[in-house]
Computed example of a mutant assay.
Amino acid sequence: MKNTIILFIVSLLPALAAAQAPAGKPASMSEAFMQQLDGDKDGRVSKEEFLAPHEQQFSNMDANKDGAIDRAEIEAVEKQWRERMDKMRKHPTGSR
């Protein structure tokens, strides 16, 4: 259950980041959610549209391609995420 929660949170990070983006970007999390997931732009997110990025995320996280994500793979993703966040803190957009 804990791993499921971690995976869900990790999969939402792009939408959360977009919701907090500067001017010209989505104004709310719901707008970011729709922009990212409503592939056919019909104003609704189908199950297939919703699952597509999660399936891609799973594939990216499953480093050894055994069809399962183990603790080491989750820790590797967490490490990459922390490194990206540290880099963003050190070099915010526009100040490089």
Score class of each variant (00 low, 15 high):
Met1Arg: 10
Met1Glu: 09
Ile5Tyr: 10
Ile6Met: 11
Leu7Ile: 11
Phe8Gln: 06
Ile9Phe: 14
Ile9Asn: 13
Leu12Tyr: 07
Leu13Val: 14
Leu13His: 10
Pro14Glu: 12
Pro14Arg: 08
Ala17Arg: 14
Ala18Pro: 04
Ala18Val: 08
Pro22Ser: 07
Pro22Asp: 07
Ala23Phe: 11
Lys25Arg: 14
Ala27Pro: 01
Met29Tyr: 15
Ser30Glu: 11
Glu31Tyr: 01
Ala32Val: 02
Met34Asn: 01
Gln35Ser: 04
Gln35Ile: 02
Lys41Arg: 14
Glu48Met: 05
Glu48Gly: 04
Glu49Gly: 00
Leu51Ile: 01
Ala52Ile: 02
Ala52Pro: 00
Gln56His: 15
Phe58Gln: 00
Phe58Asp: 02
Asn60Ile: 00
Met61Trp: 14
Met61Thr: 14
Asp62Tyr: 04
Asp62Pro: 10
Asn64Cys: 07
Asn64Tyr: 07
Lys65His: 15
Asp66Lys: 07
Ala68Ser: 15
Ile69Trp: 05
Asp70Phe: 03
Asp70Cys: 03
Ala72Lys: 11
Glu73Asn: 04
Glu75Tyr: 09
Lys79Cys: 00
Gln80Gly: 06
Met85Trp: 04
Lys87Tyr: 11
Lys87Cys: 06
Met88Arg: 13
Lys90Arg: 10
Lys90Ile: 01
Pro92Ala: 02
Thr93Pro: 11
